[in-house]
């Protein structure tokens, strides 16, 4: 695990630690004007391009004109952490209550991971954590700092060649509306990495946490079976 401080020269991470001081979760520290400077320093130092940061859970000064107290006051302050996403180290400020889906979508620009329900019912947000398919809408980002995170954006080869599951889903016309597709793809990849030659019934069970309202199940199953043969 990389030590954040060593990467971010001059960045006072202590100010970004969740702090249960006399003022409650936030106290008087909050996201002050200093955060903008700290954010920019952090980005420069780590080399990370943090897109759309601060959109959902309050405030990074780099992107919000206003400096809200609300987001931070509601549940603590952001902390700069390192995530291993699709084989790259990504530096990102994360609130204590922030879900991985939100971090991926709104801070790392990885919008292939979809939010269908945001409550662990549909599977559109499925990613792989150390190879295990997981609902990212119901996973706190702080809990995955030591895990390898794979999203649908991380499946293609260096020259854009598709993962066999993706290619099979094109060949079998797996998707209909496509909204659940990234989640279906990730569950299928997770399965095939542990069980390269599944039976059709094993595929059904492995993907059963991924709803498809279009009802494209048969086409998705055909796709995964084709990918397994590839």
């Amino acid at each position: 695990m990389t030590d954040e401080k060593s990467l971010v020269s001059g960045f006072d991470t202590s100010a970004a630690e969740p702090r249960l001081d006399e003022g409650g979760v936030l106290g008087s520290i909050g996201r002050t004007g200093a955060s903008r400077r700290q954010f920019i320093k952090g980005v420069i130092a780590s080399g990370a391009v943090v897109s759309s940061a601060g959109y959902v859970f309050g405030g990074l000064g780099g992107c919000s004109m206003e400096q809200p107290a609300g987001g931070a006051a509601a549940g603590g302050v952001e902390r700069l952490i390192s995530l291993m996403v699709n084989g790259e180290t990504r530096r990102v400020d994360v609130l204590p209550f922030e879900t991985l889906a939100m971090t991926l979508r709104y801070k790392l620009g990885l919008t292939g991971t979809k939010l269908g329900c945001d409550r662990a019912e549909c599977g559109a947000c499925t990613v792989l954590l150390d190879g295990v398919s997981t609902y990212s809408c119901s996973t706190l980002t702080h809990t995955v700092r030591n895990k390898a995170i794979r999203t649908v954006e991380g499946l293609e080869g260096p020259n854009g060649e598709l993962h066999p599951v993706q290619q099979a889903m094109i060949d079998e016309l797996g998707p209909q509306c496509g909204f659940c597709t990234p989640g279906q793809v990730m569950s299928a990849v997770g399965l095939l990495e542990t069980n390269p030659n599944p039976t059709r019934d094993e595929v059904r069970h492995a993907l059963s946490g991924n709803l498809c309202r279009c009802g494209a199940y048969d086409h998705y199953l055909n796709s995964v079976m084709r990918a397994a043969r590839a």
Binding site: S51, Y55, R105, G112, K114, L162, I170, G178
Partner: peptide, 29 residues
């Protein structure tokens, strides 16, 4: 005859942009 629809690759790679995937400068919620 079957054909490969032009949008299906974007659907399997996650590049397909649905409304919640769009960002704009100064966007609020």
């Amino acid at each position: 005859k079957n054909f490969t629809p032009p949008d299906v690759r974007a659907k399997v790679t996650g590049r397909a942009k649905y409304s919640e995937d769009i960002r704009a400068e100064g966007m609020v919620f």
